[in-house]
Every structure is written in structure tokens, then in C-alpha cells.
Design a protein around this nucleic acid. Structure first.
Lengths: 360, 360
DNA sequence: CCCGAAATTCAAAGCGCTTTGAACAACACA
DNA sequence: TGTGTTGTTCAAAGCGCTTTGAATTTCGGG
């Protein structure tokens, strides 16, 4: 048996007031006397009154819903980086009284979906995920006037929209130099898909780092794929089979880095002492231990850290602020990743060996 | 510059028809002549007409949105099992023209949120995640008359609602017997949280399996926690430190099983030959390799397999069917997990040793 | 005690769609 | 020519809320 609900009309009849007054009392307008407001609030609570979202949004044009459009081909939903981001965002939405709407679309529908969203408010705004080096969604959204915040940046120089990004270039530059300073000369890069702008920037940082330390780029030491565990496993095995294997490997995510750990363990090699591993770490929640003791420990993997969960939270906040302030001005945030040294990096063995030789 | 859109009124004025006729032509009602329908369809396409979702849902009471309520405390969003399920569901929604709505709530709000959802349609139905042994949401949803499908089952015997579940009991029974038949007498269980009904059933299967093979239950060999990687790592180290360590370990998910692999590798032990590992495998997408070659291989972990992604898809389909058919009858599906033998299980060493002794 | 301003309250229109009940046209039949 | 039928179209009401512009009440001061 479905529950009984009162609507605004019934509520106002019970109170002997007009719908106008009741609506205003509920929405905190100033032109209603305090006495009436209290009466209305009490009655609303008693009858458990809730306004109908569709009616409200039809009347106001606002929905309190944020859209996330996910292209089918990317399968982003099933990617832990994506879902961690979404976890952070959804918590921020909850705090602000918003809902998250997810629409999976075929690539070619994407544009028309954004237009639909803009049309009399399916959502109040959208988050743009995983911008490409050349990102068409940004001009599109600007032209249709739908509020949006980008997680990452597009490739162009026109950054006149709101975004939040991690300084990928800087992080990979530092990481590369860090490894070079440990004596490594053959440093491999297990990158994400380089059509993604973030991966593109990571590569730039890596190349700049090598150049800064006078190391030649070796294309055989670079791979670019979707960041999953088996990818890291395969790439590592492949690198180790080279005539001149790398002594250090940089990873775009903890997932492929875990694959590398597996590969090394199968080959009887130890991370750190045998091959140095350094990874970008999005602080994926399901890999963090619940136990406090663990975090006090020296971490296993040396990593550039930046929480993607927090990024999701912040992007959501930025978008909600943009929507509610109705201001046209854009906000940009560039986060620095921290470089945390763990047990998976060590001075280059070959180098120490040759040093030892020199000394003796 | 925001785009221009036509609404139904403008469209019908252009056509010199009434809103009624246009609306009916668009929605495929029979009482409109074929000639007019074609004209209307053409005009709608030309002007790129899209009905306003809020207006439609205000008028019809249907929203084409499915709700997922996620308690904050569970942090399910950041759990790969959960997001894989959501990935499957969202694809099914997309195919049927539905959207997915996610609302993160504080535990104590949960009930009132469901009531709100039911109230004049915030959503057309909801999916119930992770039912507990004693699940209050089921009677609640039945009483408020909001369509729902449960992923899993509640603990009670009154199963008169729609659900889809994996036969956890059966799977863990088989797995336990399988290990016992390899000669293992000390089999540990790294279970999920046993307040969850699925974990409860897995434990039952495990206990039944032990009993069937005449093995006594040892509480020191059972743990119950959230299924993350570090949990498996810790649990394994803890087991191996026992005076009488287990020779085989059952895991509730690949994640803790991966932690176990890490632990073993650190101790210089090999899965299979030293300790047998057998895990429930939800076929988490981000752990599957994209390469076809890999799947032709013998898998590394011996596992009970059932795709949680497909479960999400199927649950979504069931719910949409329930909503669209408006029928009151419930549907239940119980899926069997397949037991796939990999390299992480082997006959019990101690047993072979004693057998060898006997022979000599 | 009355008047104008300020403080409250209200009736009604509108948001964009669906749907009811009636009107109208077309047609066959007597 | 009139009547009943069928096929098409329409005007208007309604979904539940917000908001405009007008009406009503309250109150301090002349």
C-alpha cells in the first residue's frame, strides 16, 4: 500500500493559508511573518511534506542534479580511477543536497546528449571527464551555456573555463630526475593512453626530465595503454626481455605497478634492489588499508601522490559553487603531487657496481 | 550564447495543429492519421524538438530514472565490486533509455530518502545493494510501493520480492570440498563482512564443506572484514604465523587474494606449491586483461567465477521490466558460480610427504 | 481617530507536458 | 436527405510548484 503524501495545496488548505505564503515560508523568503513561518514549518514536518522535484524544477528551471556523461567505448564506469573520483564527487553532492546522474552514451550521441541536458534542465551542470589532447566537448559546452567543470585540462592554450588538474608534467619531471639522481640511466615509462591529455603531459615531464639529466630517449622503453594491472605485468616482462633492460620503471598508476610487482616476483626479482619502481598514485581507496598502523609504515611503493577521490570532491564543489553563484567567472586549480619515497626505489645497481670497481 | 529550443506549444503552432495532436503523434498513439504523423515527425526533427523531462514527469508521474541509494558509511562507491556492478547496470539503463541516479546518504536518512523517492516520482525504481542478514529496506520498500530489485537476498525466508543472487553457499561448499579432496585439512577462510548476507552464506557453505569432509572448524582460521587488498595481506601473514598454519586459504574476493600473493611472495613462498589459494572471483573488469592471449592461458588463481558486471546488467533489466510491465509478480534468479582451476591450488604438501613416507 | 507606509497575505498566471471529453469531418448506409 | 459510425482533431483541465501584481492588514504619527 503506497504511502499518503500531501502536496502544497493540501498543506496550505490545512493551514488556512494560500499556497504562495506556504511556499514562501518554506523557502525562507523574508516577507512572511515569523509566527506564520513557524506554523507552516510545524505543519510541514507533521504531514511530512516534501515538494515534488519535477514540479519544482518545471517551475524554477533548476533540478539539483549534476550530470556525468560516460562514453560507452571508454568503459570508464569500470575503472577504479573513475569510480574513486565519482565517490568523492557524490559525497560532495550529498553534502550540498544534489544528486548525481549518470548517462552512458554511444560516442556519436555525446554531443546531442549535452544539448538535451542543457535544454530546459535535465541537469544543472556537468563534469567533463578525461579530456583529450584535442577536446571538442569544451567549446561545445561553452556554446550551449551549460555549466561545467573539467577534471583535467584540454590540450589547447585557451584555458578560459573551470578546471582542476594535477601538475602531471611537473610530477613526472621530478620523478624522472629523482630516478636519474639515483644513478639510473635506463628509465622506462609505462604510460596511460596518450590521447588523454594527462598522459600526454606526463610524457612531456618524463622527456624533459631525461633531457635535463642528459639521458637519451629510447622509444623501446615507452608504452602507452589503458592503466590496468595486466598491462603493467606484460610491459614489465617485455622490458626485462630487452637486450639492455631498464633499471627503473615509471608507472602511470598503481594498478600497472602492481602488475609489475607480480612480474618481478615471478622472475625472482625484488622491487627496489633489482629494479626500481616509481608510480603515480591516485590514492585509490580500495588499496588503502583501513588499519592505521600501515600508514605509519614506510610505504612499499615510491610514488607521486595525489588523491583522485579528493579531486572528485573538489570538482563537485567547484561546479556547485558555479551553479549557485551564477557567476560567469572561471576557476582553475592546479594541484601538486607529493613525492613520497618508499621501498621500491634504490640506487642503480649497475652504477654502484661500477663505482665499487672504481674504488677498489 | 544558449541554444534556442522549441517547446510543444511552439511546435504545434508552426504546424497549425493542437498540442494534443502533436503530442499524440510523437508518442505513437493510434488515433492520429499517418499523414499528420509524418508531418509532425519531420517538423520535430527539423526544429530538434525534445520534450522537457520535468514537464513530462510532472504530467505522467514517470521519470525514466533508476535510483541507487548509497549509505555514506559503506563507502561502496569506492569499492571495485560495487562500481563494476554499476557499470553493468548503467549500460543496461542506457540501452533502455533510462538514467542512473546516485544518492549518497547518511545511514539514518536512508529510510526517509526512499520515502522521498517514492513520493511523486523522483525515480521509477531502485536497486537494493548489499542486503544484510537482517534487511530492513525490503519490507520498507514493499510498504511504500516503490519498485525495486535486490542484488543478493535478505536473510529471512520470505523471498517474495525480485532478486538476483549468486549461490554463495553452494560455491563455497564446492570450493571447500575441492580443497579437502586435494588433501588439505587446515583450510582458512578470509571472508567478507559477515553482517552482509552473502558473506554469511559463504561461511555456511564453508562450514558445511568442512563438516562433509569430517574436518573440525578452527575459529583461528576464519576472518571477516571488508574485502580490500591489504586485508588479504594481513590475514595471510597472521595465518602463517600460527603454530599450525593453514595449507590452503579461501578468499571472498580477488582483492584480498592479491594481498595474499604479495604476502607469500615477501615470505618467499609460492602460491600453489607452498600454500593453496582459492578465491571467489567477481570478474572485476579492471583486472581482466584486454589481450585475448591471456584468457587462453591457464589462469593464475583457482576461482569460483561469476561476473558482477553481468549481474548489474541483469538486475537493471529486471527492474526496468518490472517498471514497464507494471506487473506485481516477482522474479528470482540464482546464478551458479563456475569453479575454474588455475595454478594457485595443488595437493597438500604435508599429505604428500606423509604419503611418500608411507610408501617408502 | 484617520492616513499613508510598511508588513503580510492572496488570487491567478505560468512552467511544458499529457489526457479527458467533446467537436468536427468524412463516409457508408438506409 | 438524414443517421449512425469511424476516424481525426481540438480546447481545456490538470500535474505541483513558483512568482507576479494586487489586496489586505497592521501600525506609528499627525
Amino acid at each position: 500500500m503506497p504511502e499518503k503524501f500531501v502536496n502544497l495545496k493540501q498543506l496550505s488548505e490545512c493551514l488556512g493559508l494560500s499556497q504562495t505564503t506556504v511556499s514562501r515560508a518554506l523557502n525562507g523568503f523574508p516577507e512572511v511573518s515569523e509566527k506564520t513561518r513557524q506554523r507552516v514549518l510545524a505543519a510541514a514536518a507533521e504531514f511530512n511534506y516534501r515538494p515534488s522535484p519535477s514540479a519544482t524544477s518545471l517551475a524554477t528551471g533548476r533540478t539539483r542534479v549534476i550530470g556525468h556523461v560516460v562514453p560507452l567505448s571508454f568503459h570508464r564506469m569500470i575503472n577504479p580511477h573513475f569510480s574513486d573520483f565519482m565517490g568523492g564527487a557524490s559525497e560532495a553532492y550529498a553534502r550540498a543536497g544534489y544528486d548525481m546522474l549518470i548517462r552512458v552514451v554511444r560516442e556519436e550521441e555525446e554531443e546531442s546528449v549535452y544539448r538535451d541536458f542543457a535544454r530546459r534542465n535535465r541537469v544543472d551542470g556537468v563534469v567533463v571527464h578525461g579530456p583529450l589532447v584535442d577536446e571538442p566537448r569544451i567549446p561545445l559546452l561553452k556554446s550551449i551555456g551549460l555549466p561545467f567543470v573539467v577534471h583535467g585540462r584540454g590540450g589547447g592554450e585557451a584555458l578560459d573555463y573551470s578546471w582542476l588538474d594535477v601538475n602531471s608534467r611537473g610530477a613526472f619531471l621530478r620523478a624522472t630526475e629523482f630516478l636519474a639522481d639515483l644513478g639510473h640511466r635506463r628509465i622506462a615509462l609505462v604510460n596511460g593512453l596518450e590521447t588523454m591529455n594527462f598522459a600526454h603531459r606526463r610524457r612531456q615531464g618524463y622527456e624533459t626530465g631525461l633531457a635535463a639529466r642528459g639521458i637519451d630517449l629510447d622509444p623501446a622503453l615507452i608504452t602507452s595503454e589503458d592503466m590496468v594491472e595486466p598491462y603493467g605485468y606484460r610491459a614489465t616482462l617485455q622490458f626485462l626481455a630487452l637486450p639492455q633492460p631498464p633499471t627503473a620503471i615509471l608507472f602511470s598508476s598503481v594498478l600497472p605497478a602492481m602488475g609489475a610487482v607480480r612480474a618481478l616476483s615471478e622472475m625472482g626479482l625484488r622491487p627496489g634492489s633489482d629494479v626500481s619502481l616509481l608510480t603515480f598514485d591516485d590514492r585509490l581507496s580500495f588499496l588503502q588499508s583501513g588499519a592505521a598502523s600501515q600508514s605509519a609504515d614506510i610505504p612499499f611503493l615510491t610514488a607521486m601522490r595525489s588523491s583522485i577521490w579528493q579531486a572528485g570532491q573538489r570538482v563537485a564543489e567547484m561546479l556547485i559553487h558555479q551553479i549557485e553563484s551564477k557567476s560567469e567567472d572561471t576557476v582553475q586549480e592546479l594541484w601538486e603531487a607529493e613525492l613520497v619515497v618508499g621501498r621500491s626505489t634504490a640506487p642503480c645497481k649497475e652504477l654502484s657496481r661500477s663505482l665499487a670497481k672504481e674504488v677498489s
